[in-house]
Simulated assay, not measured.
Amino acid sequence: MTKTAYHHGDLRAELLRAAADQIAAEGVAAVSLRALAQRVGVSHAAPAHHFGNRQGLLTALAVEGFELLDAEMRAAAGDFRDVALAYIRFAREHPGHFDVMYRHDLLRADDERLIAARTRSGEALRAGVTELGVAPHDRRATQLAAWSLVHGFCALWREGALTNSQLGGDDPEELARRMVGAIEFVGATTP
């Protein structure tokens, strides 16, 4: 099967892409190393060679997700509203990653790459809140409120809770823009 692995070029990246696609379509419970190997067309041992086990695979997927999220939010740098929309856009465009990134029960929580990637991505959202001019004594609470707002919206959208809801709408992007545009934080000065 070594030849098959070479055929795929970057097998590790291909396995992560296939896992993200499967999670987005079928949920995280559907992912197994054996099924993933079959899906990609490699030996059953190939995913274990790259990730060790399912937890290693999901941890690598979460690391990749945090790196993608960080890049998305930094590209929108500055105004919190733009950073918040970047967070929401990431969750919509990468649902397979989003579904595992905060699932500590599925991940190697002590993985140094995971901790570093999570910390970097969090800095971008916290910096966006700082740009709002929030008073220093309110900053942590406001950062938590901001994260809860955007992550909660993403979770509600991903779980289908906005479908046929009086608070939902046909266009989740427009709904997100309106929600983020309505934000006024206690303790913020007028920008």
Rank of each mutant, 00 (worst) to 15 (best):
M1V: 15
M1I: 14
T2M: 11
K3M: 12
H7E: 15
A13E: 04
L15S: 13
L15Y: 09
L15W: 12
R17S: 12
R17H: 13
A18R: 04
A18G: 04
A18E: 00
A19C: 03
A20F: 08
I23H: 07
A30D: 10
V31W: 06
V31A: 02
R34F: 07
R34A: 08
A35N: 10
L36N: 08
L36T: 08
A37Q: 02
R39L: 15
R39A: 12
V42S: 04
S43R: 10
S43N: 14
S43H: 13
A46L: 06
A48W: 05
H49N: 14
H50K: 09
F51Q: 01
G52F: 06
N53E: 12
N53S: 13
Q55K: 13
G56M: 02
G56E: 02
T59G: 06
T59L: 01
A60E: 11
A60V: 05
L61G: 04
L61R: 02
A62G: 03
E67M: 05
E67N: 05
E67L: 04
L68F: 11
L69W: 06
D70F: 01
A71W: 01
E72M: 05
M73K: 03
R74L: 06
A76N: 06
A76I: 00
A77V: 06
D79T: 07
F80R: 06
F80E: 04
F80N: 05
R81S: 13
D82W: 01
D82H: 08
L85Q: 06
I88N: 00
F90D: 13
F90W: 09
F90M: 08
R92S: 07
G96S: 07
G96T: 01
Y102E: 13
H104W: 11
H104Y: 12
L106I: 08
L107T: 01
L107Q: 03
A109I: 12
A109M: 13
D110A: 12
D110G: 11
E112P: 11
R113C: 05
R113I: 00
L114D: 00
I115A: 05
A116R: 14
A116L: 10
A117H: 06
R118W: 07
A127K: 12
A127R: 15
G128L: 00
V129Q: 02
V129I: 05
T130D: 11
V134Q: 00
V134G: 00
P136A: 00
H137D: 14
H137F: 15
H137K: 15
R140L: 15
T142D: 02
T142F: 01
L144D: 10
W147T: 06
L149P: 02
V150S: 04
V150G: 03
G152H: 04
G152W: 06
F153C: 03
A155T: 15
A155Y: 15
L156K: 12
W157L: 11
E159V: 11
G160M: 02
A161D: 12
A161S: 09
A161P: 01
N164I: 10
Q166P: 14
Q166E: 14
L167K: 09
L167Q: 11
G168M: 06
G168C: 08
G168F: 04
L175I: 14
R178Y: 12
R178E: 14
V180D: 05
I183M: 07
F185W: 15
F185H: 09
T189K: 14
T189S: 14
